[in-house]
Write a protein that binds this DNA or RNA. Structure first.
Lengths: 151, 151
DNA sequence: CTGCTTGCAAATAGTTTGCACGTTC
DNA sequence: GAACGTGCAAACTATTTGCAAGCAG
């Protein structure tokens, strides 16, 4: 069985969570990508197929899925959060200017983690907030680019 | 003249911004500390002295002060932002568990910056979002501590 | 006096919740 | 059929905005 949707559904059942239409639909949308979508993005897509599924249900579903570790969310900007499947842990580099998001593996942060741990006893944990900066295209140009690295 | 409040006021004028009661009051509260306060915290303190100063004015004042570089804000958790005087650039380590905030100098992030820069062409820039993890006390204990490193 | 600032009320964005009904196991 | 999940409307939190009146330079 290598149907990713079915795998996720199995996972739900394994964790003792009911496999409802809403949960299926949300997982479908997340699997289809793009990899990082806001609750609202997801709700819009979900309700184009299942119009009766309400935004608040999407929020509750996302909460549930996050609770069992199937997905995660990050705050990329002011206000909205985006959700993504909980594959390998990664951090998000968000460009100040064009808003593009680049995912980088957590290992890149290991040296920092060691330093913080030695000097402050602090241990990096979640990638809940994005790392802000300037992406290469914006650093090099003055024109307005709207590239979305997002995936 | 080493009165910090007066220095800040001079700075306002130098930047061509009017020195109003609201701006004075907000600067006073920020100078008195704690170093990181939410708009609401600030408004509460401000209005205990100047009851006519409205929350929306505090927001507008904070925006103005941020515009001239006198202060900065960071998102420490879900929702609320905290404002602090724009002294030396630093990052914020926020504990997942007890919410304590530790400031660390930006230099700590230089090696990471180099790596990101080489591998992804990405340049760290703002400390707009906090770095989440576990502080030493929470890492070592299972009891609920409510320490606030905050200053 | 002229325009930047402010008070207030109302709007907004994003998310959460109470409650009665519907669905899954 | 019991327990959990969902639709809807309404509440909430943090922040922003329009407008008429107020104050700084």
């Amino acid at each position: 069985m290598d149907n990713p949707l079915e795998n996720q559904i199995q996972e739900l059942k394994r964790k003792g969570v009911k496999a409802t239409v809403a949960r299926r639909a949300v997982l479908e949308v997340l699997l289809e990508g793009p990899s990082h979508q806001s609750a609202d993005d997801i709700a819009t897509k979900v309700s184009s197929r299942y119009p009766e599924i309400h935004l608040s249900t999407v929020y509750r579903t996302l909460e549930t899925l996050e609770g069992i570790g199937a997905i995660d969310h990050v705050h990329l900007g002011h206000g909205r959060a985006v959700y993504h499947l909980g594959d390998e842990p990664h951090q998000h580099l968000v460009c100040d200017r064009c808003g593009s998001v680049t995912e980088v593996p957590n290992e890149i942060f290991s040296p920092l983690n060691e330093t913080l741990s030695k000097r402050y006893g602090f241990h990096l944990r979640r990638n809940h907030f994005a790392v802000l900066g300037r992406c290469s295209s914006c650093e090099n140009s003055t024109s307005q680019t709207s590239v979305r690295t997002y995936g």
